[in-house]
Amino acid sequence: KRCPSCQAPIEKNEGCLHMTCAKCNHGFCWRCLKSWKPNHKD
């Protein structure tokens, strides 16, 4: 998949759905690609 903010390629190996892009530091949900918020729901 690609970061929804900067389009950098992102690879997920394991862990939770909260992802942070290493290039732009954007926090997002791996499943729905929406911005991550404390009360995030898919």
Rank of each mutant, 00 (worst) to 15 (best):
K1Q: 01
K1R: 00
K1Y: 12
K1S: 01
R2C: 12
R2W: 05
R2G: 14
R2N: 15
R2Q: 15
R2S: 12
C3R: 01
C3I: 15
C3F: 03
C3D: 11
C3L: 01
C3Q: 00
P4F: 15
P4G: 12
P4Y: 14
P4C: 14
P4M: 09
S5N: 15
S5Y: 05
S5M: 15
S5D: 08
S5P: 04
C6K: 02
C6V: 04
C6E: 05
C6L: 05
Q7S: 03
Q7N: 00
Q7L: 11
Q7I: 04
A8W: 14
A8D: 05
A8T: 10
A8Q: 11
P9Q: 11
P9H: 05
P9E: 12
I10N: 02
I10M: 10
I10Q: 06
I10G: 05
I10A: 07
I10W: 02
E11Q: 03
E11R: 02
E11D: 08
E11T: 08
E11L: 05
K12S: 09
K12H: 08
K12P: 12
K12E: 10
K12V: 07
K12N: 12
K12D: 06
K12L: 07
N13E: 11
N13I: 15
N13Y: 06
N13C: 09
N13S: 09
N13L: 14
N13R: 10
N13H: 08
E14F: 02
E14W: 04
E14P: 11
E14K: 02
G15L: 02
G15H: 02
G15Q: 01
G15S: 04
G15E: 12
G15W: 07
G15T: 01
G15A: 11
G15R: 09
G15I: 15
C16N: 14
C16Y: 10
C16T: 15
C16S: 15
C16G: 15
C16R: 14
C16Q: 15
L17I: 05
L17P: 10
L17R: 01
L17Q: 09
L17H: 09
L17K: 00
L17W: 07
L17N: 00
H18P: 03
H18S: 06
H18V: 04
H18G: 07
M19T: 14
M19L: 10
M19S: 11
M19K: 11
M19Y: 00
M19C: 11
M19A: 10
M19W: 06
M19I: 11
M19G: 06
M19P: 11
T20F: 03
T20C: 03
T20Q: 10
C21M: 00
C21H: 00
C21F: 00
C21P: 01
C21Q: 02
C21A: 03
C21Y: 03
C21R: 00
C21W: 00
C21G: 02
C21E: 08
A22E: 12
A22M: 12
A22F: 00
A22I: 10
A22P: 13
A22K: 05
A22G: 06
A22L: 05
K23C: 01
K23S: 07
K23G: 06
K23M: 05
K23A: 09
K23T: 09
K23R: 11
K23I: 03
K23W: 01
K23V: 05
C24W: 01
C24F: 02
C24H: 04
C24R: 01
C24T: 01
C24A: 03
N25M: 10
N25K: 09
N25P: 04
N25R: 06
N25E: 10
N25Y: 00
N25D: 13
N25H: 03
N25A: 08
H26D: 12
H26W: 02
H26F: 13
H26R: 07
H26V: 05
G27E: 15
G27D: 14
G27W: 11
G27R: 13
F28V: 06
F28E: 09
F28S: 10
F28C: 07
F28R: 07
F28D: 13
F28M: 04
F28G: 12
F28Q: 12
C29Y: 00
C29N: 01
C29H: 02
C29P: 00
C29T: 00
C29G: 01
C29V: 00
W30E: 11
W30H: 10
W30F: 08
W30K: 04
R31M: 10
R31Q: 14
R31V: 13
R31I: 09
C32D: 07
C32Y: 01
C32A: 01
C32W: 01
C32M: 02
C32R: 00
C32H: 00
L33T: 05
L33Y: 02
L33D: 06
L33A: 05
L33K: 07
L33F: 03
K34G: 07
K34A: 03
K34W: 01
K34V: 01
K34I: 02
S35T: 12
S35Y: 03
S35C: 07
S35V: 08
S35L: 12
W36E: 14
W36K: 13
W36R: 06
W36N: 04
W36Y: 07
W36D: 14
K37M: 06
K37G: 13
K37F: 07
K37C: 12
K37L: 08
K37D: 15
K37R: 08
K37Q: 13
K37V: 12
P38W: 03
P38T: 07
P38S: 06
P38E: 14
P38Q: 08
N39R: 10
N39H: 04
N39C: 09
N39P: 12
N39I: 09
H40D: 13
H40G: 09
H40K: 05
H40Q: 08
H40F: 09
H40W: 03
H40T: 04
K41C: 15
K41D: 00
K41Q: 14
K41H: 14
K41V: 14
D42R: 00
D42V: 04
D42Q: 07
D42G: 07
D42K: 02
D42F: 01
